[in-house]
Write a protein that binds this DNA or RNA. Structure first.
Lengths: 356, 356
DNA sequence: CTGAAAGCGCTTACAG
DNA sequence: CTGAAAGCGCTTACAG
């Protein structure tokens, strides 16, 4: 016989009905009782002889579940520019997938146009191959997300989501930037720094906003005035200049700032790091590894991947055991770019005013 | 309605049969003709209204094909030790998958025991979710490979296979180590080197054997005696010593040799690289990036991934258009560790004898 | 041009 | 304890 053996083949050989074969294979827990020992043995023998294995597609169709978890990234999963942004997430997801016993489906059939993968007509239907999906990266347009919810398709986001996003609450696994940023800021304060600049993304996206929030909170506690600067607005040299202009002895640098360049610019300008100026990095720079020895915090990407997979599995099962909004702690890096404030406070060269 | 709409729902709404809906969606190319314009419009309207999308599982079951390509690695796809051996392959596969329009399934449900993923009972059946599979890495045991062939399950290997392997010819995409090694060797010969050592894996695995083959071929052409040394047998310092002992002015280093350490050991021993000793690396070191500036060749992993996916797609289609045994050219790196032979030939300190 | 039917390979009530 | 049947949601000959 040339085609793959089916339950019907096995049944024929064993002299039982096809349904009995199914029962032997995966009947309810009391199945041992439900099928007579005689038939049972013959079925098992026939399975061995034919080399039968179940067709997972048919099982999926009949059961309505597949043991496949999808991964949808709005950019390429494996960027060809060599950077591998998603890699740590995938490491975590794979480890957990092995554990949970699901396969990982990468939606590579959805074409990437202009760097963005779209959930086109074909994309939508492919989604259903998986029992649910993990979404990573800059999320798609609202229409797509809305549609996902309408379909009640199980989804977990990697990255913080606002409850107001799309419509309703979406399960996510994020990193607690607020807490981590606050912690670093407090550390700076403890080290005697008073003027601490935040140089980073000032926009309203949750990840940016949370960092600002943590910074503000720590500064408020200490009754010091926050100094917020837009990280995208300055060259490294200008950044150093503006930090000094504010009379700051320490700066928090967001991941959109080229911290290595800023440090280099400081040295060039005769500003010692950390003797004159302490620097801390708020999470891995975009598309680059964390610069060795830099103070700041790292994003727990591997753990985020693992937790996302676990969460999705629970969402698929429909059990509410897991918190649908998970914020994981970041790992603080001590590094050597952060030290006590210089004893003689530098004097601001321009009047410091609170940004609006 | 709470469940996902089906063709039956659409048909009901449009007042046609379920089969007609299917025909409208994906009838034969002459389908426009086969369904009347009236029904056609009504079906299309109903689809829009219900938001119907086909269930890919059901399609797969009915069609017997799925548009999913599996990736089976005998180790973790994403090793947690940070090294990402498979990454370049996946880059290539993803790019091609987008093009071919298939999704990539990572078989993460197969448990990894003792670092090896096994095709267990459950693993076997999961395989059938995909239309075929790309196998990467140290391949599994013969029983598994044999069984794969027995099942006529479409498979493509990444990495050179011997025709004698398993039983019969297996499609593969490999790198042409023989040609690349020969090319480097010839380059050394052109640069005036006469005593050229091959220090690497001397075992019978195809990738090792091919390198030796290329080296031998080039040396034979030039009527020079090959000097083969087992790369695993020496510390870096010993390696330098033994290379010098053979009076060699150039050495080819296999990927199991820590080339950076060897170069360092040479410097330490007062041997200038490349002035006194030219070095070339025969492909990326295991689990490490290619050392910048080193002469030698790189393995075209991205391209191999892409070609493997393309080949598998063609195997699945059953067309024989593509060569089932593909050897891709490696990229030669000029580097600065390879230069002309020293004008005054070094004299061997021990009698050189041909290894057996 | 269109409908009714069989079949893809399973699971799961439902009768006996 | 076991078999016959219906159903999962499609595709694809086969009749009309």
């Amino acid at each position: 016989m040339n085609r793959r053996p089916t339950q019907a083949d096995v049944a024929r050989m064993a002299g039982v009905s096809q349904a009995t074969v199914s029962l032997v294979l995966n009947g309810p827990s009391n199945a041992r009782a439900r099928v007579g020992e005689q038939s049972r043995r013959r079925v098992l023998d026939a399975i061995r002889e034919t080399g039968y294995v179940a067709n997972p597609l048919a099982q999926g169709l009949a059961r309505g579940r597949n043991r496949i978890v999808g991964v949808f990234t709005y950019e390429s999963v494996f960027p060809s520019d060599g950077s591998n942004f998603y890699h740590p997430f995938l490491v975590g997801m794979e480890a957990e997938a092995v554990d949970v016993g699901v396969d990982l489906l990468l939606f590579t059939s959805a074409p990437v146009a202009a760097g963005k993968r779209r959930l086109t007509d074909s994309g939508w239907n492919r989604l259903d191959i998986a029992d649910g999906c993990i979404l990573i990266g800059r999320v798609g347009n609202d229409r797509e997300l809305h549609e996902l919810r309408e379909r009640r398709y199980p989804v977990v986001y990697i990255g913080r989501r606002d409850p107001s996003d799309v419509d309703g609450h979406v399960p996510y696994v994020g990193a607690d930037y607020a807490a981590a940023t606050a912690e670093i800021t407090r550390r700076m304060l403890q080290l005697g720094h008073r003027r601490i600049v935040f140089l980073g993304d000032l926009s309203a996206v949750p990840s940016a906003r949370d960092r600002v929030l943590g910074y503000r909170r720590a500064m408020d506690e200490a009754r010091h005035r926050p100094i917020l600067l837009d990280g995208g607005a300055f060259t490294p040299a200008e950044a150093v200049q503006v930090i000094r202009d504010h009379g700051a002895t320490a700066a928090l640098l967001g991941p959109n700032v080229d911290v290595v360049a800023v440090r280099a610019a400081a040295i060039t300008a005769g500003v010692q790091v950390p003797a004159d100026l302490s620097l801390a990095l708020l999470g891995e720079p975009e598309n680059e590894p964390y610069p060795e020895g830099f103070a700041g915090f790292r994003i727990p990407r591997v753990e985020m991947g693992a937790r996302a997979l676990r969460l999705l599995a629970s969402v698929i099962e429909g059990d509410d055991a897991l918190d649908p909004a998970q914020l994981l702690a970041c790992r603080v890096e001590v590094g050597h770019t952060l030290t006590s404030a210089p004893s003689a406070p530098t004097s601001p060269t321009v009047p410091v005013k609170e940004p609006s």
